[in-house]
Design a protein around this nucleic acid. Structure first.
Lengths: 136, 136
DNA sequence: CTTCTTGCAAAATCTTTGCATCTCC
DNA sequence: GGAGATGCAAAGATTTTGCAAGAAG
């Protein structure tokens, strides 16, 4: 649904351009965080040519608007994902596959840490590393 | 205690050089993960000159031997820490300070995820972001 | 003395910046 | 038409590689 993508851009006072629509569409349909290179390849597969620099700039704008999130999985580069509800990640250390975990059950423990360490906690990330079913 | 550092190198069949001793000493006395640049500055403060390339290579060797660990906190560069017992990190998003959390109470939840998602889990990382006491 | 380690130079990656041109509203 | 977005070139930052010289055991 391209309409919803456009609406999302308009709500955020961003001009509707082919690059922004395509990137937002891709990120909103991906079930895990992706690299800039993966974004670029996906656009190319749809015959949409957008310079890498522009991709970075579009991602920056989305990040500032809070539309997306930026994460790192010890790979030396960033991944980007839609800023949906709080969730965590399962990462296969063999094939690199990333899977979302949607039910976070550690909030009580986080609250406990907040008290214990006198931190004002805003966010937390849980990454779980292992071997996926296919790679066994 | 430089002696223990040297012993650790010998146990791992690594030649004892001033760079290795100094870096290992620094990492074992730091209470949180540090950047390459911080390592370099620390060595310089002790009048120990080691090329940045050499620092990377020393860290690589330590990583392969399992003496240290490499982590990322969404900063676009790696941090390194001694490979001590399992623990997590509290990160101040204002001043960048990182504090270790030594008691991990989420293992039962990890076990549950392992079953639920059919992953063979090897490791997990919990990062908590907030504002530290000083920065409030 | 032999193997492994280091330094220097250079390159590879990923990301950011400057500026002129183009596009959306 | 004007503000904002893009492409291209170039630069910055972090990390890796090649090779000759040096140090450890």
């Amino acid at each position: 649904m391209k309409k919803e993508i456009k609406k999302l851009l308009e709500i955020n006072k961003l001009k509707v351009t082919k690059g922004r629509v395509a990137i937002l569409d891709f990120l909103y349909n991906s079930t895990y965080p992706v690299h800039v290179e993966a974004i670029k390849q996906n656009l190319l597969a749809d015959k949409i040519k957008v310079d890498t620099v522009t991709i970075y700039r579009i991602l920056d704008v989305f990040l500032k608007k809070g539309i997306i999130r930026r994460v790192e999985f010890n790979e030396g580069k960033f991944r980007y994902e839609k800023n949906s509800s709080h969730h965590h990640h399962l990462i296969c250390t063999n094939c690199g596959k990333v899977q979302d975990i949607n039910d976070c059950k550690i909030v009580p423990e986080i609250k406990h840490i907040e008290k214990q360490y006198s931190f004002l906690i805003n966010d937390h990330k849980l990454e779980i590393y292992g071997i996926c079913l296919k790679c066994r």
